[in-house]
């Protein structure tokens, strides 16, 4: 990558990224040429024919057309946009024809996190792990409103719809950790609906897949909870420092442990293990006063040990803050 590309664009990671950037440069340089003509012509004519102090108001030229110039204005842009159009379509076809040997990963958008389902079973949240030098087919859908799955370094994005599947693909050429954004407005947590794509060497990926779901057996509960807090996207809506995001902060809940919590229907309950458990699994039944009931259920996304871990982690926050 040259320095200009480094300045203008995110890294070129997918196979077609360089092609798209080159298309950009073609339009970019053509535009600069046209723009230079416009600005130069404008400034030159305006200054050359300016009305100076002391000039007399007089009749001016009746020239108002020039066949040569006008045909040039038609033909030159026509040629440029024709090239742009053809190039744009050719590159586009490369972006939509998925190679046969692609690994298929299912991506589900949901307010406001991403779920990734891998071909051999196993699920991750907000962390897409893929091998390098291997076409990856992404099958997109949504559980609620529209979302759009955008990986800038791959130069590709596609909307996630609730009533049908969309497909996109990429083949990552460089290992690393890159951003994923949601680019279709989806409500309060839209700007926090980010994820990471982790591109690994194929051997590493194999090991990671084999390990998927079987780890976390040995570490203490609250440490596992701290891991799950980010891994399961709790951090999209709940902070650890007491400030409000979409939902109440964990710290606040932790500090209120054993105290009464008031809900928007006027009822209340004591904050304990069972309350936390049910508010993760059935978040819509009781909504804390002052918040919107927007949390999706985690039924099926967390096993019992993981639930215990999150509760342990939440309880531990109170002690940490007292130190």
């Amino acid at each position: 990558m040259d320095r200009l590309t480094e300045y203008l664009f995110p890294k070129q990671v997918s196979t077609f990224a360089a092609d798209i950037d080159n298309l950009f440069y073609f339009i970019f340089y053509s535009s600069i040429a046209l723009f230079a003509i416009v600005v130069f012509g404008m400034v030159y004519l305006a200054i050359k024919y300016r009305f100076k102090k002391g000039d007399e108001v007089r009749l001016t030229s009746s020239k108002d057309h020039s066949n040569i110039l006008e045909s040039l204005f038609f033909i030159v842009p026509l040629i440029l946009v024709s090239i742009t159009f053809v190039w744009g379509i050719r590159s586009y076809l490369k972006m939509i024809i998925v190679p046969d040997d692609a690994i298929e990963i299912k991506v589900t958008g949901q307010s406001w996190f991403w779920t990734f389902d891998y071909p051999d079973g196993g699920t991750t949240l907000n962390e897409l792990v893929v091998p390098s030098n291997q076409p990856i087919k992404i099958v997109l859908s949504s559980k609620d409103v529209l979302h759009s799955f955008f990986i800038p370094v791959m130069r590709t994005k596609m909307d996630c719809l609730p009533n049908r599947y969309n497909v996109m693909w990429f083949d990552a050429q460089q290992e690393g950790v890159y951003d994923i954004f949601c680019t279709e407005y989806c409500g309060t947590g839209h700007s926090q609906m980010g994820a990471k794509v982790i591109v690994m060497k194929p051997a590493q990926y194999e090991a990671w897949v084999a390990d998927l779901g079987s780890d976390d057996e040995d570490i203490p509960l609250d440490e596992l909870g701290a891991k799950l807090y980010t891994k399961k996207a709790c951090n999209t809506c709940h902070t650890l420092d007491g400030s409000d995001l979409v939902g109440p902060s964990y710290l606040q809940t932790s500090q209120m442990w054993g105290e009464e919590r008031v809900f928007d229907d006027g009822t209340s309950t004591i904050i304990d293990d069972n309350y936390i458990r049910s508010s993760i699994l059935e978040p819509q039944t009781k909504i804390v006063a002052g918040y919107q009931g927007v949390m999706p259920t985690y039924q099926g996304l967390l096993n019992d040990r993981e639930l215990d871990a999150l509760i342990a982690f939440l309880k531990s926050l109170k002690e940490d803050s007292q130190i």
Partner: peptide, 26 residues
């Protein structure tokens, strides 16, 4: 003339499908 020319020319970038996919909703 200056600003609208920029506005118009950048529209050409967005009209090219392959490039628009990167730039859409950004």
């Amino acid at each position: 003339l200056f600003l609208f020319t920029i506005g118009g020319l950048t529209g050409i970038f967005l009209g090219a499908v392959a490039l628009d996919i990167h730039l859409h909703d950004t």
